[in-house]
């Protein structure tokens, strides 16, 4: 692929004796949603801050749509729309004033379309300090888009947002992708990353631990399938391992097994339940989720 809009090569960032980012490299294609995952202190925010021109890398190369984050700061602000994780506008500023101000610095008219799109048109006269977390996040996203950026960086955009707010932000991110905007999404939420991202990178202790589509990253871990089964009389709770699956244990009446081939294992379990005339209330066959793979990587601590 050669339509990379952002390239990061061997990025290193040290704070005195601490290496926050240690030789991270990845490329991001134009128009994709790229997830940056990792536990606290993994180096996600530092990596993003280097991309945003808010930190000086110790070494390594970064190119954002052909721009150097430190040498082309003014142009970068037009190319990159940024929603920071921990930032705030003045409490007394009105939503409409914030949009007017940001648009004035981008040399465009106040973006009424964005206010409408993010449900902020009725909140134009509301002070930032009196807005809910979801409303603040929506306003920050709208402001990040005010200059029509090619790339949008979202650092934990749904942190502290309710279910409806989350759904609205997810819909907005999909719309951005449909418009061809590249989205870099840093998140702790594996379900969010799995649902939204075309590709993800997992950082552990400043190093790249996994890179690929959510499916590729998940598949690279344990290949075993989990079977969860609940019967009316609980006859299988003491069944233990069977020929085709190893028993994991039980919780609240649900017994769990791990197997390499689901079909014969499920058949064997169903036969066992039927032979004891115990009706099956619930049966689930699940591949490991991205979250489980993430935990596996974090606990293993292995990097690429």
């Amino acid at each position: 692929m050669n339509n990379y809009i952002l390239t990061l090569h061997n990025l290193v960032k040290q704070y005195q004796s601490i290496t926050a980012v240690d030789g991270v490299s990845f490329n991001i294609c134009a128009g994709e949603i790229f997830g940056l995952l990792g536990p606290n202190g993994a180096g996600k925010t530092t990596t993003l801050e280097c991309i945003e021109g808010l930190r000086v890398p110790t070494s390594g190369d970064i190119s954002v749509d052909g721009l150097h984050p430190l040498h082309n700061r003014r142009e970068l602000r037009k190319t990159l729309g940024i929603q920071l994780q921990s930032s705030s506008l003045p409490e007394a500023i009105l939503a409409g004033e914030a949009m007017t101000l940001v648009c004035a610095y981008h040399g465009v008219k106040p973006r009424e379309d964005l206010m409408q799109r993010f449900g902020l048109d009725t909140l134009k006269h509301k002070q930032y300090g009196k807005m809910s977390t979801g409303q603040k996040r929506r306003l920050q996203l709208a402001l990040a888009l005010a200059g029509n950026p090619k790339i949008v960086v979202l650092d934990e955009p749904t942190a502290g947002v309710d279910v409806q707010g989350r759904a609205e932000l997810h819909a907005a991110i999909y719309e951005l992708k449909a418009e061809g905007v590249t989205v870099i999404l840093a998140t702790h939420d594996m379900a969010e990353a799995e649902a939204l991202c075309d590709r993800i990178a997992i950082l552990i202790k400043g190093r790249l631990a996994a890179l690929g589509t959510p499916e590729q990253v998940t598949a690279a871990g344990s290949s075993q399938t989990r079977i969860t089964l609940r019967t009316r009389h609980g006859s299988l709770l003491k069944q233990g391992s069977i020929q085709k699956a190893s028993y994991l244990g039980q919780s609240e009446g649900f017994a769990q097994w791990l197997c390499n081939d689901a079909a014969p294992a499920v058949m064997e379990l169903l036969n066992a339940a039927m032979s004891q005339e115990d009706p099956v209330d619930d049966l689930r066959v699940e591949r490991p989720s991205l979250e489980e793979r993430f935990l596996e990587i974090v606990e293993g601590g292995k990097t690429l």
Binding site: L84, S87, Y105, L143
Partner: peptide
């Protein structure tokens, strides 16, 4: 307060 709340950083990345 502008510094503590990250407002200066927010303004900076928004081009102000």
């Amino acid at each position: 307060k502008l510094r503590e709340a990250g407002t200066l950083r927010a303004y900076q990345v928004l081009g102000i």
